[in-house]
């Protein structure tokens, strides 16, 4: 169980499991007070180890037409809380220290939330 909070962003996040093999259905909890409307929402993930990038991708979380998640379309000022699984390809985490950069932004490219975390796997 790992969690974090950021009082500046009204942002909290936790993962219910911390094993070397990342399961394909990872349960997370996530709460935020939105600073922007999220009619559309995108996630950018960048993974680094020792300063060199390993993984970099952009993923659409909310689309305008028939959005996937119930928090899509929520308004600026609204509080959202998500507890549930996230889809990811299950994979082994190799030993080491990783830096993760996460950024959520909306259709106007305004940042909704961002996080800079370090994961140590030993």
């Amino acid at each position: 169980m790992w969690s974090m909070e950021d009082p500046l962003q009204d942002f909290g996040f936790s993962v219910d499991q911390c094993s070397k093999h990342l399961k394909s259905n990872l349960n997370i909890r996530f709460g935020i007070i939105l600073r922007e409307d999220i009619k559309e929402l995108f996630l950018d993930i960048a993974l680094f180890t020792k300063g060199s990038p390993i993984l970099n991708f952009s993923y659409p979380i909310c689309e305008e037409d028939l959005p996937k998640f119930s928090f899509c379309g929520r308004r600026k000022g609204e509080q959202i809380y998500y507890a549930g699984p996230i889809n990811n390809p299950g994979f082994e985490i190799l030993q080491g220290e990783y830096q993760i950069l996460l950024e959520l932004y909306n259709e106007h490219r305004s940042t909704v939330a961002c996080a800079n975390a370090t994961v140590v796997c030993s």
């Binding site: 998640f69 119930s70 928090f71 998500y82 549930g84 699984p85």
Partner: peptide
């Protein structure tokens, strides 16, 4: 008419 669920609900 739209029927359905959300992935997280």
């Amino acid at each position: 008419l739209v029927l359905g669920e959300f992935k997280n609900e």
